[in-house]
């Protein structure tokens, strides 16, 4: 685009107007997002407690040293990573299947597309509450279904066992977000020109081969972007765990955000809690870097 810059008939230079128009949004971001990040960092170097805010003193990296030796921190990290990797992987596979289905012409496709959006649109606390009822060991419907179908011979406590509680959270998360993934991938599928498939069919490529030689490479960029969003979202999971298990049983579902929240607002330990928050921030930063790297390599 060619445009000449400079004074226009308004008398306001275009770039000044540009800055003016961006200013409110930028100011909000700087004040409510950027500045607090730095303050979290400085808080994390103190021993600030909400009960005694005036007695806070600088303690350097002590909080971090404490965390790195804290087995609870590492198990929360493990839980968070496990939750993130497994649920995002499942969402990707299921979402892909849904996208492929929704990409085919069939009766009621519009309805299906609308329906899959609903889980995404409702508050997580609501969906978590719904799942919590369904998981209940006595009054829950999941035990009832599984028993009727013969998968179990007696009621199980899905949320009360360290081996299944995190999986319960994963399933509830996949239920809520796989459709979202499906819609993003569907949009990607629809940008693939039909001629490519026709050409591949002429070449005698099977459907499966077409999927790997045409669909997958072309949808890769969309998929990576969708994966970034979902991975970062899954990594900061909080509402779901808060409602479903509160971090139990035996802390087996405590995620990093949950740990930070408890430390900050239940134990009122703002120093240590902020240090956990900073570490979460660093993890998120690293994850983004990996994806951006992958994405730019894709584009080359």
């Amino acid at each position: 685009m060619r445009r000449h810059r400079g004074i226009r008939s308004t008398g306001i230079p275009e770039d000044v107007l540009g800055y003016l128009m961006v200013a409110p949004a930028l100011l909000c971001i700087l004040m409510i997002a950027i500045y607090p990040v730095f303050r979290t960092f400085s808080l994390s170097m103190t021993d600030m407690k909400m009960q005694f805010p005036d007695m806070a003193k600088y303690i350097g990296l002590n909080n971090y040293v404490k965390l790195l030796q804290d087995s609870r921190f590492w198990s929360a990290t493990y839980n968070t990573l496990f939750f993130t990797v497994v649920s995002v992987a499942m969402e990707l596979v299921i979402g892909f299947a849904m996208a492929l289905i929704m990409n085919m012409p069939f009766k009621g496709r519009g309805l299906v597309r609308a329906a899959v959006l609903v889980p995404w649109a409702i508050p997580t606390t609501v969906s978590a509450t719904m799942w919590k009822f369904m998981y209940h060991d006595q009054f829950g419907v999941i035990n009832d279904i599984l028993l009727r179908m013969g998968f179990i011979d007696q009621y199980r406590s899905w949320l009360g066992s360290t081996s299944s509680a995190l999986w319960c959270a994963i399933i509830a998360d996949v239920w809520k977000t796989a459709p979202f993934m499906g819609l993003l991938l569907l949009a990607g599928l629809q940008t693939i020109p039909g001629e490519l498939y026709e050409a591949a069919t002429v070449d005698g490529a099977s459907r499966i081969k077409q999927f790997f030689s045409v669909t997958l490479p072309l949808i890769m960029p969309t998929m990576l972007v969708a994966l970034i969003f979902r991975t970062l979202d899954a990594f900061r999971v909080f509402d779901l765990i808060f409602v479903l298990t509160g971090g139990g049983p035996g802390n087996s579902t405590e995620t990093l955000t949950m740990y930070a929240y408890t430390t900050l607002f239940r134990n009122l330990d703002f120093g240590l809690g902020s240090a956990i928050a900073v570490l979460i921030f660093i993890f998120v930063f690293l994850i983004s870097l990996v994806y951006i790297n992958l994405l730019s390599r894709q584009n080359d």
Binding site: H136, D137, F139, Q154, Y155, R156, S157, L159, G160, G248
Partner: peptide, 16 residues
Amino acid sequence: APEGVTTYIENDGGAM
């Protein structure tokens, strides 16, 4: 106790 007692608060057991 019921299988799920390790998830119970006052009202779960109360209801049972």
